[in-house]
Simulated scan of single mutants.
Amino acid sequence: MTKTVAHIEKVLEVANSTSAAALSRLAASWRRSAERHGLDPGEHRGPRRLEGTHLCERLGAFEKLMTVAAPRLDNLYSLVGQSGCAVLLTDDDGVVLDQRISAADTAVFEAWGLCVGADWSERHEGTNGIGTCLAEQRRVIIHRDEHFYARNTAMSCIDAPIYGAEGQIMAALDVSSARADQTEAFNRLIGAQVAQTARAIEEANFRAAFEKARIVVAESDDAEAATLLAVDDHDLIIGATREARRVFGFDPLGALAPRPANDVLGRADGPTGFEKAERAAVIRALTRAGGNVSEAARQLGIGRATLYRRMKRLGLDQT
């Protein structure tokens, strides 16, 4: 029995087992691929690809995300590119928007369908790093024969989700490897860097969405999540990342209804994580400005009178 046939039989056996799906996330994904999406693990066709006008429209819709993500994709590629890895950014449907691949590896990844315009959603490609990351909205590593399709078992895929400014999942960050000697231990090391880069993209996208607001980093028990609040000149919270919404009990999705920061965070029990972060930001600005309130206000992007009010509220005097 060939490895391909053995893989196909194993996937179908597991996919048909309800008990296996209940015990394993991988088995559950294989079952979704076979039952919900009607896929055959022995299928030979390549990934579906968007081209022409359809691809241009997709790229245009995600132009802002691609702009803020580009330098972070470059940084990630500088760390993993020499080891035979490709870096890909997809939209929330699993369509590849941008990529970083060495010239020497381009032909291999193109043959596998890891290229701009390719649709790697779970509904079309079965269990894979990009599609399963988006379907389950979590970090995943799909290593070689964990893929649903037998034709994808030569690759390893390491992915992390990226959430938008309104809490919605909007993209996946993927590192895929063509190396036959890629180990699971190495995948885990790459996975940590992928998660860190995804968080950096999420933070940069949130800051761009609220470029006129003050961005405050709040405390969270999840060190891998971006926990940011956008506060306007009236001290109203007007935006929050997905993790910040969870921490403060806001609606998980959609535009945030403005609310006074003090009403949400309170002061009865002493400074909150938000207030400590705000106080630190004001102190840093005053220190950089040598105590000059007008200069500190300019650095913070607020008016001098507004800064005086905040200093008073935070218990800071001019000295």
Rank of each mutant, 00 (worst) to 15 (best):
T2A: 12
G301L: 00
I302Q: 06
A103K: 15
G84Y: 09
D317N: 13
R138G: 11
Y77E: 02
D91R: 05
R313K: 12
T53M: 15
T67A: 03
E146G: 04
L134T: 04
R25D: 14
A171E: 06
A27W: 05
S177P: 00
V282Q: 02
A107W: 10
A21S: 12
A213M: 11
L256E: 06
L88T: 07
D92S: 15
Y77L: 03
T197Y: 11
R36S: 14
G249W: 03
Q99N: 04
P41T: 01
G191T: 00
N292I: 03
A268M: 10
V14Y: 07
N75K: 09
V87M: 10
A209W: 00
R138P: 01
P258I: 05
R279W: 13
D74C: 05
G84L: 10
C115I: 15
A277S: 15
V96S: 03
D40G: 04
A135W: 05
Q182W: 10
G42C: 07
R58G: 00
G315R: 12
P271M: 10
W120F: 04
N128D: 10
V231D: 00
L65F: 04
V264D: 02
R123N: 13
E136L: 15
G46A: 09
L256T: 08
M66D: 08
W120N: 01
P258F: 03
